[in-house]
């Protein structure tokens, strides 16, 4: 009895957060649906062109289920999403779910690859920047990361292409050969992943630096140092774990921004991922596909946010019991 009550108390803030995320997702679905469906003009007319007879337009409208009330269409759409059925594209007549799954097989590895690069750059640079704070190398790292943050992913991508592809022919400029040849597939992901990862690494390094500097200035670290430990030792024994907590937030937020950044990068490098599918759908006025992808990305962003929030509480025992 007592154990269940304790468990319930521990789970309450978590459940409350899940509740807010469900509300946010519902709101997001209403928003996306409204923006994409309240406009006058019928998708059937767009598909059939201006020459189509009114009868043909009416027929196709009924076939697509667009003659139902907006509320009915909304309920059908969300119901489908909840059952994992994303519908069929008005334009390509392909299953949207299959298309998205195919696209994710490119975007997923790209985002992970970029995250690894971002961490590999951001963590050591931020650490060195903090330990060497006030010295030349520290200021240099600080300055470089400030500039790196100001570089748009597009610019990073184009400059990498100019340097590594046009001049030295190291990597393919664009396209994706598919996973049947994993080595070639990875090779074509290298430049896009670096375009994303370099910029994210610069941002990350600033947070790492700030977080570690804060630990270096704390009383307990000063105590540790006065007891004879070197900076590195003191940080390893006491500081790192405290510095890591705010970093969980940052890495989570970076993951969300990498997913969005992938939309841009895929268009620079013509990678057939989620971003290219999204842009193609916008250009073809394939609104149902846009609706599905928008909802998917919004869900990913909100869920990452939730996971970050919850893990923050799990990692920091001081926050236990607070909501």
């Amino acid at each position: 009895m007592d154990a269940t009550r304790r468990l319930a108390r521990a789970a309450a803030p978590f459940l409350r957060r899940v509740g807010t995320i469900v509300v946010a997702l519902w709101g997001a679905s209403v928003l996306v649906f409204t923006v994409l469906n309240v406009l006058p003009g019928s998708p059937a007319q767009v598909i059939l062109g201006t020459q189509a007879t009114p009868q043909a337009v009416r027929q196709l409208t009924a076939q697509l289920g667009l003659n139902k009330s907006l509320l009915r269409q909304y309920v059908d759409w969300v119901g489908g999403l909840l059952h994992g059925s994303l519908g069929v594209s008005y334009i390509s007549h392909l299953g949207i779910g299959a298309q998205i799954a195919q696209a994710l097989s490119v975007t997923g590895p790209l985002v992970l690859f970029a995250l690894v690069i971002g961490l590999a750059i951001g963590l050591p640079l931020g650490f060195i920047g903090a330990v060497r704070h006030g010295r030349f190398s520290g200021s240099l790292i600080g300055g470089l990361s400030q500039i790196g943050m100001a570089v748009p992913t597009v610019v990073a991508g184009l400059l990498l292409v100019i340097i590594l592809t046009v001049k030295f022919h190291v990597f393919p400029t664009s396209g994706f050969p598919g996973w049947s040849d994993p080595l070639q597939a990875l090779r074509s992901l290298v430049l896009p992943a670096f375009s994303l990862g370099l910029v994210e690494g610069a941002i990350l390094s600033r947070y790492v630096r700030a977080s570690i500097l804060e630990q270096l200035r704390s009383d307990y670290l000063r105590t540790a140092r006065s007891k004879g430990l070197r900076v590195g030792q003191a940080l390893r024994r006491h500081g790192i774990r405290n510095a890591a907590i705010p970093l969980v937030t940052v890495v989570g937020l970076e993951l969300a921004s990498l997913i969005v950044g992938a939309i841009v990068v895929e268009n620079v490098f013509a990678l057939p991922g989620l971003g290219l599918l999204l842009l193609d759908s916008v250009n073809n006025r394939d609104l149902l596909t846009v609706q599905d992808i928008a909802m998917l990305v919004a869900t990913a962003v909100l869920v990452i946010n939730l996971v970050v929030d919850v893990s923050y509480h799990l990692l920091d025992p001081r926050l236990k019991g607070q909501s």
Partner: peptide, 8 residues
């Protein structure tokens, strides 16, 4: 605000 947060 949470809802808008889902739309970068």
């Amino acid at each position: 605000a949470d809802i808008l947060y889902g739309f970068p």
